[in-house]
């Protein structure tokens, strides 16, 4: 019984991780960069959501249009910030060693976290309840509420949308081409820079959506909230095979479920360390992840 409840909670968290992990994986795919700041975009999503909701007065008069505009405006805002970060911080370093870009990403992450503390204040804010929690299913002690269901449904929808964009549209095809080779993609006339910007835009949209979804069930919003989910989503991406979208989704779910189980059955203080155990284990024994492909290293 207890176990099933944990599983429900785990899947709900797992879909959040999966949404964030997709951003990591897409950016890694096109740039071979671990975008350390991605977790902070998720934080910004929740923050923007908070401010837009307060500005529109959603808490007082909730309506479908207002809720939707909160979601869309903050997603759009994060998308633009993601594009800006790429344009000004990562693009100049495209030819630099990958570690330089990684350090820059760490810098951007620190900037967003500390800048966030300056601008938004370090104290947590309470996200206005856009949707009221209702139980929609109860079986003995197992409870499934509408928000958990919504997190899962919206995540699934967004993932399918993303999958469709990447597999079926022209832009998606261009993204896949760029992930193989910038030079070759450029030679056949693909606007590489625009494709990379678009990738950051998509990834940031998903992270912002994840931020708002989390705030619905867990309304404490603060500038450092992105660090741990960001790192764990990164682990999820590595676990599934970095650069592989299906892998990111599966990795996210595995991370969410296993983490809830660890804190439920072992110890909650080890919850955060557990993610790193998984990370190191995967890196050492199957660096290509669950779904990734390996090729022999060429000398």
């Amino acid at each position: 019984m207890q176990f099933l409840q944990q599983l429900i909670n785990g899947i709900s968290w797992g879909s959040i991780y999966a949404l964030i992990a997709l951003g990591y994986t897409m950016v890694y795919g096109v740039l071979r960069l671990i975008n350390f700041a991605h977790g902070d975009i998720y934080m910004l999503g929740a923050m923007f959501g908070y401010y837009v909701a307060v500005f529109l007065g959603v808490a007082e008069h909730a309506s479908g249009v207002r809720v939707l505009s909160v979601v869309l405006i903050s997603m759009l805002g994060c998308g633009l910030i993601g594009v800006g970060i790429e344009r000004f911080c990562y693009r100049p370093l495209r030819k630099a060693p990958r570690l330089a870009a990684l350090m820059t990403a760490v810098g951007v992450s620190l900037l967003l976290e500390n800048g966030g503390q300056l601008i938004f204040g370090a104290d947590p804010k309470f996200f206005p309840p856009l949707i009221h929690t209702r139980e929609i299913f109860r079986f003995h002690e197992i409870v499934l509420n509408n928000i958990q269901l919504m997190i899962f449904a919206v995540s699934l929808l967004l993932m399918f949308l993303l999958h469709w964009i990447v597999m079926k549209t022209r832009m998606g095809k261009a993204m896949r081409a760029v992930s193989f080779s910038h030079d070759a993609a450029g030679l056949v006339g693909i606007p590489v820079n625009r494709v990379i910007s678009f990738t950051f835009f998509l990834g940031s949209l998903l992270a912002a959506a994840a931020g708002i979804l989390v705030s619905l069930s867990n309304p404490k919003v603060e500038p450092l909230m992105g660090i741990m989910p960001g790192l764990k989503a990164f682990v999820a991406a590595v676990l599934g095979g970095i650069g592989n979208m299906m892998g990111a989704m599966i990795g996210g779910l595995i991370m969410g479920i296993s983490e809830v189980l660890v804190s439920g059955y072992i110890s909650s203080t080890y919850r955060d360390a557990f993610a790193f155990f998984i990370l190191i284990f995967i890196l050492l024994y199957k660096p290509s992840g669950l779904l990734g492909k390996t090729g022999p290293e060429k000398l």
Partner: peptide, 11 residues
């Protein structure tokens, strides 16, 4: 904040 800016500009 200065710290992170220093890091970014340095890179």
């Amino acid at each position: 904040v200065v710290y992170s800016l220093v890091l970014i500009f340095l890179m």
